[in-house]
Write a protein that binds this DNA or RNA. Structure first.
Lengths: 340, 340
DNA sequence: CTTGGCACTCGAATCCAGTGAGTGCCAGGG
DNA sequence: CCCTGGCACTCACTGGATTCGAGTGCCAAG
């Protein structure tokens, strides 16, 4: 019973602090929430909560603010899912349904997430490594140059221009095209690359040089994990809203947002769309980002997570709202990928 | 003679203020520059400069800071080109030469510009509208779906998936491919679109429906100026360095950087790579960005400007350095586009 | 035209009380 | 055992007064 109230107090503190960004005291707490007890009682509870490490006071005789541990308890046990408003749901569907291609989906998702949560949004492009080959196109560009276009099951398109040691006839190109497609269609990228390297054997000895060059370029495109690391960031203007711990917190955040590798580590392993990952403050791998939290989840067709998306913001964020938005967007995007 | 010294004083003020970010007084000025006159003389000159509107004092009995008009005079008449260091030149060539495709070139350019100038860098993707068609590829995806790949002279690749009203045989696809290419090869986008709309007439009456759908999608891809508006932004972390006029200036900047349309207006019309555009403070079209300047130029193969690139920073920036960096990067990128 | 001298201005820094939100603790009552 | 009102205490914050000093403007002399 009394334990319950303590948790209620913690919840109230988190909610008020997130709303006001100011340390919250016992008096204000009983005023704004129906706790049914006096400030003195709340004070006792607060003392206990502080003892247990859930809240802290910035200085003696100031209100309390939640610690990372406090936020953790809050998201794990105290926060109820905040359903999105009808308007928000509508915004999601209408915005995402207007998307024309994969790039567009990703761009719109970032925008959407940033708007919904008023935080910085991060969306990773679908990973190459788990997708399969849908088609390979070989286009002569004149001279001895070829354009290779690699179309993947996720809708991603990679292209490369390759310079051959000698020109190829149109017939030779056509032959290569069919053989390459026969070898790789429907294969996962890693497997497709394996099959490709054996492909030159199927050709005459003296025509192998150009084939080998072409295959090498294609294999490189397949194994090039550059695009794995591609992420899109949006809503950075929201950073300026933390009028508070400014320079200490905004600088490393901006730096992190530039470093895609860092961002990907922040988003973490792509989990299934039904699982949300919340990383609070110091729980993350970066010391400089101790004041920021990450709410992320995976997305992809079916329940297979191809990539992650999420938001990054100060530890003092609206967790229920952010979590609801991230989850909703991930689901809608997954559904779109399902259909496309 | 005395007029010359006044200009020297202005130059010194700009340089010192840019370096220290603090109002500069007469004493400090004679200490740090070999002006060969006493502080009192400098004071007289300063009074004159203020009278003419080139400098101002934030409050009585403080040092002077340049006005927008002062910066303008500085960049127009006082700044000598600051040659890049050997290391910087090396950085440019090595970084840009490693690029594998157009996207990569753009990405690397942004990074480079941000590093060189320690400002926010903006690079516009090469415009579609002025480029010509190099190749159109039509790929059956099974069922009645086709993938259209549009390859442009700039190296840009656009793709669309189109759903036809009825399936097409492989032979029909091949025929379409040749006809489409014959009609559009080498044409500018606008002209190519014009030719395409007449294409269905060349086919049998009863096979026109799928052709029309295909053509419509291609024309849309060609006239879709979405990609005209694509820009890449980098180096936002540098914003945090303006430890000074923070909240008044960083917020609108972040917002502007999110709005690509705004950014494009800031970059302005793409000029030839040999011409630099410098927009100082209030000279720009946006009231909120009165404290920011833009250094931009066009780039593209030959001397034809396909798109713009540049940097955005506080009016108190190192103009000679920024201008040198922007110009150098634009030239190198143009050269790469020439070769590619 | 330049220069040294000098009075003057005004923001920034320092100091110092006063204020008040908030706490911890305690004794009394359900 | 838990809640509550009371009370002394702490300490950031505010605002006014004061000082300090960088920097200016002006003037008379060279």
């Amino acid at each position: 019973m009394v334990e319950d109230r303590k948790l209620n107090v913690l919840r109230a503190i988190v909610e008020d602090y997130v709303a006001t960004q100011e340390p919250v005291g016992s008096k204000a707490l009983v005023d704004r929430h129906q706790l049914g007890v006096s400030p003195a009682t709340v004070r006792n509870d607060m003392a206990a909560l502080e003892e247990e490490g859930f809240i802290t006071q910035p200085h003696t005789s100031a209100g309390r603010i939640p610690t990372d541990k406090g936020y953790r308890l809050f998201v794990d046990r105290l926060s109820t899912v905040k359903p999105l408003s009808a308007a928000e749901k509508r915004a999601i569907t209408t915005l995402l349904e207007g998307a024309v291609d994969l790039d567009d989906v990703v761009q719109r998702s970032v925008r959407l997430l940033a708007q919904l949560t008023r935080q910085v949004a991060v969306v990773q492009y679908p990973t190459l490594s788990r997708s399969t080959v849908r088609h390979v196109e070989v286009v002569p560009l004149g001279g001895s140059r070829l354009l290779l276009v690699l179309i993947l099951s996720t809708g991603r398109v990679e292209q490369r221009v390759v310079e051959l040691p000698e020109p190829l006839s149109d017939e030779a190109v056509a032959e290569i095209r069919t053989k390459v497609n026969r070898a790789t269609l429907g294969e996962r990228l890693a497997d497709a690359a394996d099959k490709l390297v054996q492909l030159p054997d199927e050709f005459e000895q003296d025509s192998r040089a150009p084939i080998a060059a072409l295959v090498a370029s294609l294999v490189e495109a397949m194994s090039d994990h550059r695009s794995d690391e591609r992420v899109l960031v949006g809503g950075t203007a929201n950073l300026a809203r933390f009028g508070d711990g400014f320079d200490t917190s905004i600088r490393p955040m901006l730096e992190a947002l530039e470093e895609h590798v860092v961002l990907l580590r922040l988003l973490g392993e792509a989990t299934s769309p039904s699982t949300l990952t919340v990383r609070i403050g110091h729980e993350g791998p970066y010391e400089e980002l101790a004041a920021t939290s990450v709410v992320a989840t995976g997305y992809g067709p079916g329940d297979e997570a191809l990539a992650s998306l999420g938001i990054v913001g100060p530890t003092r964020m609206d967790y229920p709202g952010s979590m609801a938005a991230v989850r909703a967007v991930a689901r809608y995007v997954s559904r779109i990928l399902d259909e496309g």
